[in-house]
Protein backbone atom coordinates (compact mmCIF):
# COMPACT_ATOMS: atom_id res chain seq x y z
CA UNK A 1 0.00 0.00 0.00
CA UNK A 2 1.22 3.47 -0.83
CA UNK A 3 2.16 5.94 1.84
CA UNK A 4 -0.57 8.60 1.89
CA UNK A 5 0.72 12.16 2.08
CA UNK A 6 -1.37 15.31 2.33
CA UNK A 7 -1.11 18.00 -0.31
CA UNK A 8 0.29 20.43 2.26
CA UNK A 9 2.66 17.88 3.80
CA UNK A 10 2.47 19.39 7.27
CA UNK A 11 2.87 23.04 6.20
CA UNK A 12 2.34 25.66 8.89
CA UNK A 13 2.18 29.44 8.99
CA UNK A 14 1.68 31.76 11.90
CA UNK A 15 0.62 35.35 11.47
CA UNK A 16 -2.70 37.05 12.03
CA UNK A 17 -4.06 33.54 12.16
CA UNK A 18 -2.43 30.13 12.44
CA UNK A 19 -2.69 28.08 9.25
CA UNK A 20 -1.97 24.39 9.51
CA UNK A 21 -2.32 21.26 7.46
CA UNK A 22 -5.23 19.40 9.02
CA UNK A 23 -3.59 16.07 8.20
CA UNK A 24 -5.19 13.14 6.47
CA UNK A 25 -8.95 13.17 6.62
CA UNK A 26 -11.33 10.61 5.19
CA UNK A 27 -13.88 12.33 2.92
CA UNK A 28 -16.73 10.85 0.96
CA UNK A 29 -18.89 12.75 -1.46
CA UNK A 30 -22.41 11.38 -1.32
CA UNK A 31 -25.04 12.49 -3.80
CA UNK A 32 -28.62 11.40 -3.96
CA UNK A 33 -31.97 12.06 -2.37
CA UNK A 34 -31.14 13.64 1.00
CA UNK A 35 -34.72 13.20 2.16
CA UNK A 36 -34.59 9.41 1.94
CA UNK A 37 -34.69 7.46 5.18
CA UNK A 38 -32.04 5.01 3.98
CA UNK A 39 -29.57 7.82 3.43
CA UNK A 40 -30.18 9.36 6.85
CA UNK A 41 -29.72 5.93 8.38
CA UNK A 42 -26.43 5.16 6.69
CA UNK A 43 -25.06 8.65 7.42
CA UNK A 44 -25.97 8.13 11.06
CA UNK A 45 -24.37 4.71 11.22
CA UNK A 46 -21.11 5.97 9.70
CA UNK A 47 -20.68 9.28 11.51
CA UNK A 48 -23.12 9.08 14.40
CA UNK A 49 -24.46 12.46 13.22
CA UNK A 50 -27.94 13.24 12.01
CA UNK A 51 -28.79 14.53 8.54
CA UNK A 52 -27.76 18.22 8.43
CA UNK A 53 -30.18 21.00 7.55
CA UNK A 54 -29.40 23.02 4.42
CA UNK A 55 -25.89 24.54 4.82
CA UNK A 56 -25.44 22.75 8.14
CA UNK A 57 -22.56 20.71 9.51
CA UNK A 58 -23.33 17.96 12.02
CA UNK A 59 -20.55 16.45 14.10
CA UNK A 60 -20.70 13.39 16.31
CA UNK A 61 -18.34 10.81 17.79
CA UNK A 62 -17.25 9.06 14.61
CA UNK A 63 -17.20 11.91 12.16
CA UNK A 64 -19.01 14.86 10.59
CA UNK A 65 -21.37 15.42 7.74
CA UNK A 66 -21.71 18.69 5.83
CA UNK A 67 -24.54 19.81 3.53
CA UNK A 68 -22.97 20.79 0.21
CA UNK A 69 -25.98 21.26 -2.07
CA UNK A 70 -29.62 20.08 -2.20
CA UNK A 71 -28.44 16.66 -3.34
CA UNK A 72 -24.90 16.41 -2.00
CA UNK A 73 -23.24 15.70 1.34
CA UNK A 74 -19.61 15.62 2.39
CA UNK A 75 -19.03 12.88 4.92
CA UNK A 76 -15.88 13.18 7.01
CA UNK A 77 -14.42 10.24 8.90
CA UNK A 78 -10.98 9.04 9.99
CA UNK A 79 -8.71 8.54 6.99
CA UNK A 80 -8.35 4.75 7.28
CA UNK A 81 -12.12 4.34 7.70
CA UNK A 82 -13.07 6.02 4.41
CA UNK A 83 -12.95 3.00 2.11
CA UNK A 84 -15.07 0.90 4.46
CA UNK A 85 -17.54 3.76 4.88
CA UNK A 86 -17.85 4.17 1.12
CA UNK A 87 -18.54 0.45 0.73
CA UNK A 88 -21.11 0.62 3.50
CA UNK A 89 -22.95 3.47 1.76
CA UNK A 90 -22.91 1.72 -1.61
CA UNK A 91 -24.29 -1.36 0.07
CA UNK A 92 -26.97 0.44 2.09
CA UNK A 93 -28.19 2.49 -0.86
CA UNK A 94 -28.11 -0.23 -3.49
CA UNK A 95 -31.16 0.02 -5.71
CA UNK A 96 -31.49 3.72 -4.93
CA UNK A 97 -30.13 6.39 -7.30
CA UNK A 98 -27.00 7.70 -5.61
CA UNK A 99 -23.28 8.28 -5.95
CA UNK A 100 -20.67 7.73 -3.25
CA UNK A 101 -17.00 8.43 -3.92
CA UNK A 102 -14.02 8.45 -1.63
CA UNK A 103 -12.44 11.84 -2.27
CA UNK A 104 -10.01 11.79 0.68
CA UNK A 105 -6.94 12.18 -1.53
CA UNK A 106 -8.56 14.67 -3.87
CA UNK A 107 -8.75 17.48 -1.34
CA UNK A 108 -6.52 19.61 0.86
CA UNK A 109 -7.79 20.42 4.35
CA UNK A 110 -6.68 23.36 6.47
CA UNK A 111 -7.04 24.08 10.16
CA UNK A 112 -7.35 27.81 10.68
CA UNK A 113 -7.26 29.35 14.14
CA UNK A 114 -7.05 32.88 15.45
CA UNK A 115 -9.06 35.92 16.35
CA UNK A 116 -8.64 37.49 12.91
CA UNK A 117 -10.06 34.49 11.09
CA UNK A 118 -13.13 36.24 9.73
CA UNK A 119 -11.05 39.24 8.61
CA UNK A 120 -8.55 37.07 6.76
CA UNK A 121 -11.21 35.03 4.97
CA UNK A 122 -13.09 38.20 4.05
CA UNK A 123 -10.06 39.39 2.10
CA UNK A 124 -10.64 36.82 -0.60
CA UNK A 125 -14.23 35.71 -0.37
CA UNK A 126 -17.48 37.55 -1.15
CA UNK A 127 -19.10 35.76 1.80
CA UNK A 128 -20.85 37.77 4.47
CA UNK A 129 -18.62 36.69 7.35
CA UNK A 130 -20.67 38.34 10.05
CA UNK A 131 -21.30 35.71 12.76
CA UNK A 132 -25.04 36.24 12.29
CA UNK A 133 -24.79 35.41 8.59
CA UNK A 134 -22.26 32.59 8.96
CA UNK A 135 -22.70 31.08 12.44
CA UNK A 136 -20.68 28.25 13.91
CA UNK A 137 -21.73 24.93 12.39
CA UNK A 138 -22.76 26.32 9.02
CA UNK A 139 -20.73 25.45 5.95
CA UNK A 140 -20.13 28.00 3.22
CA UNK A 141 -19.07 26.96 -0.25
CA UNK A 142 -17.60 29.97 -1.93
CA UNK A 143 -14.45 31.20 -3.57
CA UNK A 144 -11.18 32.38 -2.05
CA UNK A 145 -9.37 34.53 -4.54
CA UNK A 146 -10.32 32.72 -7.72
CA UNK A 147 -10.57 29.22 -6.29
CA UNK A 148 -13.50 27.19 -5.06
CA UNK A 149 -13.27 26.42 -1.33
CA UNK A 150 -15.61 25.46 1.48
CA UNK A 151 -15.15 26.48 5.07
CA UNK A 152 -17.01 26.25 8.33
CA UNK A 153 -16.38 27.55 11.82
CA UNK A 154 -16.05 24.96 14.54
CA UNK A 155 -15.53 27.65 17.16
CA UNK A 156 -15.54 31.46 17.11
CA UNK A 157 -11.80 31.44 16.43
CA UNK A 158 -11.36 28.14 14.63
CA UNK A 159 -12.39 26.97 11.18
CA UNK A 160 -11.77 24.18 8.73
CA UNK A 161 -11.23 24.95 5.06
CA UNK A 162 -11.34 22.45 2.22
CA UNK A 163 -10.16 22.94 -1.36
CA UNK A 164 -9.06 20.79 -4.27
CA UNK A 165 -5.72 19.08 -3.73
CA UNK A 166 -4.17 20.46 -6.91
CA UNK A 167 -4.56 24.03 -5.66
CA UNK A 168 -3.74 23.28 -2.01
CA UNK A 169 -0.30 24.85 -2.16
CA UNK A 170 -1.66 27.98 -3.83
CA UNK A 171 -4.44 28.34 -1.24
CA UNK A 172 -1.86 27.91 1.54
CA UNK A 173 0.33 30.66 0.10
CA UNK A 174 -2.70 32.85 -0.53
CA UNK A 175 -3.84 32.48 3.08
CA UNK A 176 -0.33 33.03 4.43
CA UNK A 177 -0.08 36.24 2.42
CA UNK A 178 -3.50 37.40 3.63
CA UNK A 179 -2.52 36.59 7.21
CA UNK A 180 0.65 38.65 7.38
CA UNK A 181 1.00 40.44 10.68
CA UNK A 182 -0.21 44.02 10.62
CA UNK A 183 -2.48 43.48 7.63
CA UNK A 184 -5.80 42.99 9.39
CA UNK A 185 -8.61 45.38 8.55
CA UNK A 186 -9.84 44.72 12.11
CA UNK A 187 -13.43 44.75 10.94
CA UNK A 188 -14.80 41.48 12.29
CA UNK A 189 -12.23 41.17 15.10
CA UNK A 190 -13.16 44.61 16.47
CA UNK A 191 -16.83 43.70 16.66
CA UNK A 192 -16.19 40.72 18.87
Amino acid sequence: MSNAVTALNGAKYSGLIDIADAGLMGMITLRGDLASAAMAKVVKSITGAKMPKPRGVETAGKGSVAWMSPDELLIMVDYPAADAAEAKITDALSGQHHLAVNVSDARAVFDLTGDHLRDVLAKGSPTNLNPDALPIGEVRRTRLGQLAVAFWFTDESAAKLVCFRSVGDHVFKWLANAAQNGSSPNFHSDMR
Binding site: P54, R55, S69, P70, P126, N128, R141, T142, R143
Partner: peptide, 11 residues
Protein backbone atom coordinates in the same frame (compact mmCIF):
# COMPACT_ATOMS: atom_id res chain seq x y z
CA UNK B 1 -33.19 29.51 -4.13
CA UNK B 2 -31.38 26.17 -3.89
CA UNK B 3 -29.14 26.92 -0.92
CA UNK B 4 -30.56 30.20 0.37
CA UNK B 5 -27.28 32.08 0.18
CA UNK B 6 -27.29 35.71 -0.90
CA UNK B 7 -24.48 35.32 -3.40
CA UNK B 8 -22.37 38.03 -4.93
CA UNK B 9 -22.26 37.98 -8.73
CA UNK B 10 -18.59 36.95 -8.66
CA UNK B 11 -19.73 33.68 -7.11
Amino acid sequence: PNCGIAADETE
